[in-house]
Design a protein around this nucleic acid. Structure first.
Lengths: 262, 262
DNA sequence: CAGTGGTCTAGACCACACG
DNA sequence: GTGTGGTCTAGACCACTGA
């Protein structure tokens, strides 16, 4: 029996909600690691179109409850170890993972060499045409990609030789090993973004899925910017928090806490 | 001329990318405040279906470059004032906005009274059935909703009377006015989430659009939790950053920085 | 090769704003 | 009412995985 005017029967606008509830139940009932019915089959069972079904499934993928693999199927993910950390200290993912005894590894390392164009030389505070290194890689944990990292820095701070041996994915850890650079702090901008097609592909998620993005400027003790990085994190595998103190608002209003940055 | 097999002609998988580029150009060329062509018309002009067009437009809405209004149209948004602040200090949106001379106002205030159920009494560290107040409201800036805030706290800290007079939308500012409560700090969890239908409606965005979410636990100097809040921020109208210092990683690995929280 | 998820289409109806 | 964005459908093709 076909529904020619599906919207005009039962519920007004809550189809999506109902769908998500039914999906939540289905996921909860399915043992971890098991495959869900295929999308066409599920759509038929739940009485919705495949497009609507997929839309409703997105939220669960973002929470890390399911994982979709093209050509294979959609799987229920069990309890995952969450990397939880405060933001007051700057640490590599590797260091954070080590603290909770989680194994992480690097995949898909790409190293590019380029000259600073105008925008890049401005950001990194280097002369135009300075040699730069760009390092992109995916970080795996729990047997799936969970973060996508891109670092851009002057070649003097991290040459190719440094990357050939013992590079495990962390530019920060690599820089910390150098005795000649004293790092001081990182100014990290925190954003929520939708995954671009490229990043979605690298992280094996859907384009448009939500990601947490840190844009960090790493400074040396001399005040030079050593590294400029973008870090994309899959929600559901990371939990970041920060302790915020009560300020004297009266003071804050005529004495800006944050001087001009970037 | 109909395309029966649209995928099999020109470009393989870059339709979406091309679309976004064309849209970016169109938006850049359109004066701020102007209306874009209607979706069916744009879809026809760009040679894509409406579904694909809408999907591609989502990213621009998240960045605050366009605004869609049901029954009216899609409009190009000009340069907007961004609320930029560090996270080290806890401040209300009103205080942050004041610093950059941005006018904000409250809309859609909803106050609910409820008894602490098991999960809530656990979170707030109060006995079961304690009277609680839940406060939801939307914050407007630049003539549009930009944040959705939900606070949950024991009634003893914020009774209805406190909210009847002079409540401008900030629970924090209201609490700071009380002499009998000494606030100390907030432990704030930072997440990226997709907008649920309810929140999307309140913020006048699309369901599934990306939001930055702060889940904050506000503590008094005595260590009691005073307030538990969820704050949803529209990207493009806020910019949060935090200064992270270099930790001694050797120390950090056997001396956890973060004791058990929540 | 068959079967899965990923993308896209064309068209329908709904909800809303405005004259 | 007219026209806009918001939702949903049915069906097609593509890209990938694994037998």
């Amino acid at each position: 029996m076909k529904k020619v005017q599906p919207q005009s029967e039962g519920e007004p606008q809550r189809l999506f909600q109902r769908l998500q509830n039914e999906l939540a139940q289905l996921i909860a009932e399915t043992p971890a690691g098991e495959r869900l019915p295929s999308e066409p089959e599920l759509a038929r069972k739940l009485g919705v179109s495949r497009a609507t079904l997929r839309e409703a499934m997105r939220a669960f993928e973002g929470q890390g409850l399911i994982r979709r693999r093209q050509g294979v199927g959609t799987f229920v993910v069990g309890q995952t170890n969450v990397i939880e950390t405060g933001l007051e200290l700057l640490e590599s993912i590797e260091t954070m993972a080590e603290r909770i005894q989680l194994k992480v590894s690097m995949g898909d390392l790409q190293i590019g060499h380029l000259k600073a164009d105008e925008s890049r030389s401005t950001i990194l505070q280097v002369p135009s045409d300075s040699p730069l290194v760009q390092i992109s890689r995916v970080i795996h944990a729990e047997n799936r990609p969970v973060a996508y990292l891109v670092d851009l820095l002057p070649e003097e701070f991290l040459s190719s030789k440094d990357l050939e041996v013992g590079f495990t994915g962390s530019v920060l850890d690599q820089l910390l090993r150098r005795q000649d650079i004293q790092l001081s702090e990182s100014v990290t901008n925190i954003r929520a973004v939708a995954a671009s097609p490229e990043i979605a592909h690298a992280l094996q998620i859907q384009r448009g899925d939500v990601l947490l993005l840190f844009i960090a400027e790493l400074y040396s003790k001399e005040g030079r910017m050593v590294d400029y990085s973008h870090s994309y994190f899959l929600p559901g595998y990371f939990r970041f928090h920060v302790v915020r103190s009560i300020g004297l608002s009266k003071v804050a209003s005529w004495m800006p806490i944050e001087p001009e940055r970037r």
